[in-house]
Design a protein around this nucleic acid. Structure first.
Lengths: 214, 214
DNA sequence: AAACTGGGAGAACAGTTGTTAACTGCATGG
DNA sequence: CCATGCAGTTAACAACTGTTCTCCCAGTTT
């Protein structure tokens, strides 16, 4: 078996390459805490790593390409965590607390990643915007699928479930951004919980007085 | 009365100044459609206007300063419009339609302004972020005040009203951003309406089964 | 052991950037 | 009617940018 195509590194050669690549990603993420991707210079990144500017091209075509890689790094591993959290909790207060705590923990652990996503979601680099959009749409689909497998979803159309899921996902990003701009997470956490409670309440009475006619 | 301190221009001299200033703002806004403020160059703006780079300093300290001016231009006139719209409609479907239509009309009329706000709300320039944050907080307060003057707000705490208002305001920005990324406003408008319906439904049942104890 | 591969270095390129200084000419206030 | 103020110009600065080409040398393959 001479071609294991999944491992991050096969020889010491490729290991070193991944190491520099990661260093570039880390340096970029740090620089992006106080500027947008569209103003991030290639030389700026390589200088921070301590490597020649030309080395950049061995890993990324341009800074937009690096941005797309950062999107994967920031959101890739979150899919399983999010679905697992929803699956482990029923509807109601318990789930609300778990969802908010998940975001709070994520922002605490990876503030730079969270900031990057919030910032570049509507940022000036199209390819990165699209990459984030695709990831968030995927999140919404996964959340909607989880909702669909629950008794509370009885009578709900697929479209309405997706609408509800997007509401949750967008609210998460919103909350993350709010957490980043405050130093006291308390009030933000509290507001986020109440807002989710509002949505949950709406969900419960969605089928009460159908406005189906429009 | 030789000193009318409010008019935008007193003599032909000041009129010309305002004209160049506006030209700078317009050019900047156009350039910002495909990049972020943190990458907007001062020379880039003056070049687009057809004026010497140094002329920029007669109007703005730097591009961040120009950004703050753009925030005022984009959101300043929206306060009265928003409050008027809410005041003219009661709670329910009517208000939901009016609020969504307001956003749709705004994005149609001033797409570049809307894009700028959505982009720089979490953007890389602190002063601009703060300016937008302050404006949105003001919107939320105004909306909350309008809510407070309605019968449906009976039994609501001031904090809960503000929470609800922020939900509406943030949802408006979210919707505006979604409208900018699609060429068919139909589905986005529809989703936005349903999401507001969800929140309205939650509002109606907020006091049903109080979770006050936490 | 010899040939090859490819990550990284080095230097140079044309162009860009923000900022300073000293200027010009015109509308304005005395 | 003349002197002042000030929006805008011109020129120059050091520093920076992305990109190309050429080279080097350690790890890998045969």
């Amino acid at each position: 078996m001479s071609h294991t195509l999944d491992g991050p590194a096969r020889g010491a050669r490729q290991a070193q390459k991944q190491k520099t690549r990661q260093a570039l990603l880390d340096a970029a993420l740090r620089l992006l805490e106080e500027q947008s991707l569209s103003s991030l210079g290639l030389r700026e990144v390589t200088r921070a790593v301590g490597v020649a500017p030309t080395a950049f091209y061995r890993h990324f075509r341009d800074t937009a390409d690096l941005g797309v890689a950062l999107v994967e790094e920031a959101l890739g591993s979150l899919h399983t965590t999010l679905v697992a959290t929803l699956a482990a909790t029923g509807d109601g207060e318990e789930r609300i607390a778990a969802a908010v705590d998940l975001i709070v923990a994520y922002v605490r652990a990876y503030p730079a990643h969270a900031r990057f996503i919030a910032r570049e979601q509507h940022g000036g680099v199209k390819r990165v915007r699209e990459a984030i959009g695709a990831q968030l749409a995927l999140f919404a689909e996964e959340v909607a699928a989880q909702f669909a497998s629950e008794p509370e979803a009885a009578g709900w159309s697929e479209d309405d479930l997706l609408m509800l899921a997007r509401m949750y996902v967008d609210h998460m990003v919103m909350t993350a951004s709010a957490l980043l701009e405050t130093d006291d997470a308390g009030p933000v956490t509290d507001t986020a919980r109440r807002q989710l409670r509002l949505v949950s309440l709406g969900r419960l009475h969605w089928l009460d007085a159908p406005v189906r006619g429009n």
